[in-house]
């Protein structure tokens, strides 16, 4: 028997695998492909205090071993989310991580307050969206702002708070420490890296937003490096993500220091990607006679 369960800031996940916010909706679409109870947790698409329309299209573009997206955080707002999406996820034997977005401190806090008595196990605060001008990356790249927003959210949150950090910074250790100083229970990284693609035939930007966030296997080595650096800079647990497609990719992030790993863009390549990562981690442990998956966290 291999133990795959991990404790993540006081919440027990049956295995260390979740989905990356924005790549899995609220689970409904992929719930038609597999039983979501196979996952340690489901992380939902960013939700704001009111519905957000998002950016004009084209919103996505493929790049070598990855993609750019500039969705702009389209979401139905917290009220619809509470009425429709959370009850759907509550039917599964999996933990729910609700990803929260906002343009300003009050907006984040409003969402967090509305989640207080809801069946959400953890909150992930997105302060690192590269596709929304105010509120996204603006919060996530300045350590002082990271600390302030963390403190404001922590003051109201009933659930443990994960601050989602931006990789679009010179030193990830600084923002990681700022989140810890603000009282974060955990950090998650990496969000997407800002990129751009040009249609050379038409001499035009491919994305309507001009820039977009790069994700997928192309960013995996950056994620491994940043998870390693961040996890050594702070004492709080790390949720690692960025380009995970296989169990080996997930294990790499765990060995770099992540306690839990999220599968994102890979879901688009294979709807079963996240479930296969769980199975693959189990097989890896069996093969290497690892009795407890927690033994590999930060083992390098």
């Amino acid at each position: 028997m291999v133990n795959l369960a991990v404790d993540f800031c006081g919440v027990t996940l049956k295995n260390p695998v979740t989905t990356a916010s924005g790549t899995f909706g609220s689970g409904m679409e992929y719930g038609e492909f597999f039983d979501l109870s196979r996952l340690g947790a489901v992380t939902t698409k960013g939700v704001a205090n009111v519905p957000w329309e998002g950016n004009p299209t084209p919103r996505v573009a493929e790049t070598p071993s990855g993609m750019l997206n500039a969705i702009g955080l389209q979401n139905p707002g917290i009220d619809v989310f509470l009425e429709r999406d959370l009850p759907y996820l509550a039917k599964y034997d999996t933990k729910v991580i609700v990803n929260v977005c906002g343009h300003a401190e009050e907006e984040y806090v409003e969402v967090v307050e509305k989640l207080a008595d809801e069946p959400a196990d953890l909150l992930e605060i997105n302060i690192s969206c590269p596709n929304v001008k105010a509120g996204g990356i603006a919060f996530g790249t300045d350590p002082k702002a990271v600390e302030a927003i963390t403190r404001a959210v922590k003051a109201k949150a009933r659930q443990p708070v994960i601050m989602k950090l931006s990789p679009n910074v010179t030193d990830i250790k600084e923002t990681a420490k700022a989140a810890e100083a603000g009282g974060a229970d955990a950090i998650s990284l990496i969000n997407t890296l800002t990129g751009m693609k040009i249609d050379v035939e038409r001499r035009r930007f491919l994305l309507a937003n001009r820039t977009g966030g790069l994700s997928g296997p192309a960013i995996h080595p950056i994620a491994v490096r940043m998870v390693y650096e961040a996890s050594h800079a702070v004492g709080i647990p790390v949720l690692g993500m960025g380009g995970v497609r296989t169990a080996e990719d997930a294990i790499e992030l765990m060995m770099a220091g992540a306690a839990v790993v999220a599968v994102g863009t890979a879901n688009f390549h294979d709807p079963l990607a996240a479930a296969k990562v769980v199975d693959g981690i189990r097989e890896f442990c069996v093969k290497h006679e690892i009795r407890d998956v927690r033994d590999i966290i930060g083992c390098v």
Partner: peptide
């Protein structure tokens, strides 16, 4: 342009005249 093809990523929206049933915007 699509990424997931199954409704999860919100990459492929088109403008609608009335509020859409999913995101409650007009997409």
């Amino acid at each position: 342009r699509m990424a997931c093809g199954v409704g999860a990523c919100l990459g492929c929206v088109t403008k609608t005249k009335e509020t859409d049933g999913h995101s409650h915007v007009k997409n």
